[in-house]
């Protein structure tokens, strides 16, 4: 047994990982979700807003992190649309605009067809410069955004008529997979203007631990990795979707199935590796 473990071909480990993720997907296994405090905090921040309030949704991620952040984007947009908030989408990542298009297509146009572009939601598109962009739009939105992503001048967009800078937003929702992302939004927007701006965020697993020092003073709510997405999805669907929510709003909770099996596999692999190590150590000492 030990010799099998010692000589375990790494491709066999790959195969195990593939099966650990693939089988639960094929079986479509689902598990119950119990929302944690931080997911509840994100939900409560959005819940506290009034219809017509302005929310800036910064989509700073790309397809490489869509597995984690895509479901968050879907349920955050759904929640904001249910609350009848005015949505201002923007991106600091070049691929971010595609992520914005995805939620506009999959959430707003499918389930909220009454929402009017320019009155209820607007896509400001991408601007390069990361923190440089945040710095500018904090004091003057129009210097950088002459038109929206569709080429319409800002002063012809009703929901932007009286918006001069993003300090007028009632909440910033940052979805981030790295730099620039939530960290920059906290550093450059929220920290200097704590009385004007509030932020909640969703981020990848890699980023989540790095953002904890900002909680709760600078960042009241955070959805970390796919688990955070699943918890928030559960909260939003319980509150708004009724008995039979559309299947696409179960994406994060569905993905917790492969997550569980793969995590258990990881633990078993670590234990197996340690068994080999300590047995060999023992033999060596003898």
């Amino acid at each position: 047994m030990l010799s099998i473990l010692r000589n375990l071909d790494r491709r066999l480990i790959f195969l195990m990982m593939l099966l650990a993720v693939a089988v639960p997907i094929l079986l479509q296994s689902r598990f119950p979700e119990k929302p944690s405090g931080l997911a509840q905090a994100v939900f409560d921040e959005i819940e506290a807003l009034q219809p017509g309030d302005r929310v800036l949704l910064a989509f700073d991620f790309d397809p490489a992190s869509e597995g984690e952040l895509g479901p968050m984007a879907t349920s955050l947009t759904y929640h904001c649309a249910q609350k009848e908030l005015r949505l201002y989408f923007m991106a600091l990542w070049p691929v971010g605009p595609q992520m914005i298009s995805n939620v506009i297509q999959d959430v707003i146009r499918r389930d909220f067809p009454h929402m009017v572009y320019g009155e209820d939601y607007v896509d400001l598109g991408f601007k390069s410069g990361g923190e440089g962009v945040i710095k500018v739009i904090l004091t003057d939105l129009r210097q950088l955004y002459t038109t929206d992503a569709r080429g319409t001048p800002l002063n012809r967009i009703p929901m932007l008529e009286d918006v001069t800078d993003i300090r007028q937003m009632d909440l910033i929702v940052s979805l981030s997979a790295g730099t620039p992302g939530t960290k920059e939004w906290v550093q450059y927007a929220v920290t200097p203007y704590p009385h004007d701006l509030r932020i909640v965020a969703g981020c990848t697993g890699i980023q989540a631990p790095l953002l904890y020092p900002y909680i709760p003073q600078q960042l009241p709510g955070l959805l970390g990795a796919i688990k955070g997405a699943a918890e928030y999805e559960e909260l939003v669907m319980q509150a708004y979707a009724g008995e039979d929510p559309p299947a696409r709003y179960a994406e994060a909770r569905r993905r917790m199935g492969p997550q569980l099996v793969a995590h258990v596999l990881m633990i078993l692999l670590i234990i197996a590796g340690n068994v080999v190590y300590f047995t060999e150590q023992k033999r060596g000492r003898r």
């Binding site: 790494r10 480990i13 990982m17 593939l18 692999l269 670590i270 197996a272 590796g273």
Partner: peptide, 16 residues
């Protein structure tokens, strides 16, 4: 996504 495989392999070999 490939990293999921390599992190598993590394966990088995190096996480002591």
């Amino acid at each position: 996504a490939l990293l999921a495989f390599y992190v598993a392999s590394a966990a088995f070999r190096a996480f002591r």
